[in-house]
Computed example of a mutant assay.
Amino acid sequence: MSKGYWIVAYRSVSDQAKVKAYAELARPPIEAAGGRALVFNARPEVQEAGVQQLTVVIEFPSIEAARQAYASPAYAASLEALGDGAERDFRIVEGLPQ
Results as ranks from 00 to 15, higher is better:
residue 1 M to H: 11
residue 1 M to N: 10
residue 2 S to H: 13
residue 5 Y to I: 08
residue 7 I to E: 11
residue 7 I to C: 15
residue 7 I to D: 12
residue 8 V to W: 10
residue 10 Y to R: 04
residue 11 R to V: 13
residue 11 R to A: 14
residue 12 S to K: 07
residue 12 S to R: 06
residue 13 V to G: 08
residue 14 S to H: 10
residue 14 S to T: 15
residue 15 D to W: 01
residue 16 Q to S: 09
residue 17 A to G: 07
residue 18 K to E: 00
residue 18 K to N: 06
residue 19 V to F: 00
residue 19 V to T: 03
residue 20 K to R: 15
residue 22 Y to Q: 04
residue 22 Y to H: 03
residue 23 A to D: 00
residue 24 E to A: 08
residue 25 L to S: 11
residue 26 A to V: 00
residue 26 A to N: 01
residue 28 P to N: 08
residue 28 P to Y: 02
residue 28 P to Q: 07
residue 29 P to Q: 04
residue 29 P to A: 03
residue 30 I to F: 09
residue 31 E to A: 12
residue 33 A to W: 03
residue 33 A to L: 07
residue 33 A to Y: 02
residue 34 G to K: 03
residue 34 G to Y: 01
residue 35 G to E: 01
residue 37 A to V: 15
residue 37 A to F: 15
residue 38 L to G: 02
residue 38 L to C: 03
residue 39 V to T: 06
residue 39 V to L: 02
residue 39 V to G: 00
residue 40 F to W: 08
residue 40 F to K: 06
residue 42 A to I: 03
residue 42 A to L: 03
residue 42 A to N: 06
residue 43 R to C: 10
residue 43 R to K: 14
residue 44 P to S: 12
residue 44 P to W: 01
residue 44 P to L: 10
residue 45 E to K: 04
residue 45 E to A: 08
residue 48 E to D: 09
residue 48 E to N: 11
residue 48 E to H: 12
residue 49 A to N: 10
residue 50 G to R: 01
residue 50 G to A: 03
residue 51 V to I: 12
residue 51 V to P: 12
residue 51 V to R: 12
residue 52 Q to T: 12
residue 52 Q to C: 13
residue 53 Q to V: 14
residue 54 L to W: 09
residue 55 T to W: 04
residue 56 V to I: 01
residue 56 V to L: 06
residue 57 V to Q: 06
residue 57 V to D: 02
residue 57 V to C: 05
residue 57 V to R: 05
residue 59 E to W: 10
residue 60 F to G: 02
residue 62 S to M: 07
residue 62 S to P: 08
residue 63 I to G: 13
residue 64 E to C: 07
residue 65 A to V: 05
residue 65 A to P: 06
residue 66 A to I: 00
residue 68 Q to A: 15
residue 68 Q to S: 13
residue 69 A to C: 10
residue 69 A to M: 10
residue 69 A to S: 11
residue 71 A to D: 05
residue 71 A to M: 07
residue 71 A to G: 06
residue 72 S to P: 04
residue 72 S to N: 03
residue 73 P to H: 11
residue 74 A to K: 15
residue 74 A to Y: 09
residue 75 Y to R: 06
residue 76 A to P: 08
residue 77 A to H: 07
residue 77 A to V: 10
residue 77 A to N: 06
residue 79 L to D: 09
residue 79 L to C: 08
residue 79 L to V: 10
residue 80 E to F: 00
residue 80 E to Y: 00
residue 80 E to D: 05
residue 84 D to K: 15
residue 86 A to Y: 00
residue 88 R to C: 12
residue 88 R to A: 09
residue 90 F to L: 04
residue 90 F to Y: 13
residue 90 F to I: 04
residue 93 V to Q: 03
residue 94 E to L: 12
residue 94 E to W: 04
residue 94 E to M: 12
residue 95 G to C: 06
residue 95 G to R: 11
residue 95 G to D: 04
residue 97 P to G: 13
residue 97 P to L: 10
